[in-house]
Amino acid sequence: MKKTFLAVMMAGSVMAMAGMAHAADGTVKFVGNIIDTACTVDTASQDQTVPLGDVAASSFTSAGIVSTAQKFDVKLTNCPAGNVAVVFAGTSDAVNTDLLQLDSGMTAKGVGVRINNATDGTQVKVNDTVSPLRVTVDGSGAATLNYVGQYQSTTASVTAGTANATSQFTVLYN
């Protein structure tokens, strides 16, 4: 009798717990759009080289010092109506994750590459899909996003050497 009672109690407990496991605690709603076409990246914008120049290591006297900014643009055509943004992807600097890390094999130390919106001067953080500057596509389906690139010291002491960095970019729509 004790075994039967124990079996019935265990079965009842399992059933009660099963009901609790299926209780709704929240909702996830997926939203978005399927668009007809994606923008075309202008050929001059697809594979760019932005010359940051030769900068003296001694000009970086503390962390956070930046070199002269060099302008570059990402030009888009044939875009659907709405807004577009660009996300710059790449390896973040180990000291300042908002910066782009120098490429493997580079000999300079203590610097990363900073990207800013040329329009409003705000920093474009590497791999940031949340807060990139959005630009409205014009009536012809074109948009130009203006940026600047520059070195930024991550330490008080910068070591001279080669300092190239590479980023891929992706166009976001909304």
Rank of each mutant, 00 (worst) to 15 (best):
A81P: 02
S59Y: 07
S167V: 11
L100R: 10
V41C: 00
R134I: 07
F60H: 00
H22D: 12
T37K: 13
D98R: 14
V55R: 00
T170M: 09
K29A: 09
D103T: 09
K109C: 01
T136Y: 06
Y173E: 00
G161L: 02
R134G: 09
Q152V: 11
A44L: 10
G112Y: 13
K2Q: 14
V55M: 01
V171E: 01
G82L: 07
G139I: 08
G161K: 02
M106Y: 02
A16R: 04
V111T: 01
A142Y: 09
S59G: 08
N117T: 13
L99I: 04
A7C: 06
T27A: 06
T166M: 05
L6M: 10
V126D: 07
V126L: 15
A163H: 05
T68N: 13
S62Q: 12
G161T: 03
I34R: 06
S131L: 08
V158H: 00
A69Y: 14
G19L: 15
I35C: 05
G105F: 05
V87C: 08
D98C: 11
A23Y: 11
H22M: 14
Y147E: 01
L76H: 02
A94P: 09
Q150G: 02
S45F: 04
A38K: 12
A156L: 01
V158I: 01
M1C: 13
V8R: 10
R114A: 10
T43D: 13
V55E: 00
S13A: 15
K3T: 13
T155L: 06
T27H: 06
Q150R: 04
A94G: 12
Q48G: 02
G32V: 04
T154E: 04
V135T: 13
F60I: 00
S45L: 02
S157N: 05
K3M: 09
V31N: 10
A142S: 15
L145Y: 03
H22N: 15
D36T: 13
R114V: 12
A69N: 14
T43I: 07
K75E: 06
M17L: 15
T129E: 09
T4M: 14
T136N: 11
D98G: 14
V66E: 15
S104E: 15
F169C: 01
V41I: 07
A165Y: 08
K2L: 14
S140C: 09
M10A: 14
S58P: 07
D73A: 01
M106A: 04
G121C: 08
A63K: 09
T144N: 10
L172E: 11
T97D: 15
S157H: 02
A44C: 04
I65H: 08
A81L: 11
Y147N: 02
D73G: 02
N33F: 07
N83C: 10
D36P: 07
S45V: 04
V66L: 12
N127G: 03
L133W: 07
G32E: 03
G90S: 12
C39W: 11
M10C: 09
D42L: 05
G149H: 10
G161P: 03
G141R: 11
A63T: 07
V84H: 05
A89N: 15
Q101H: 15
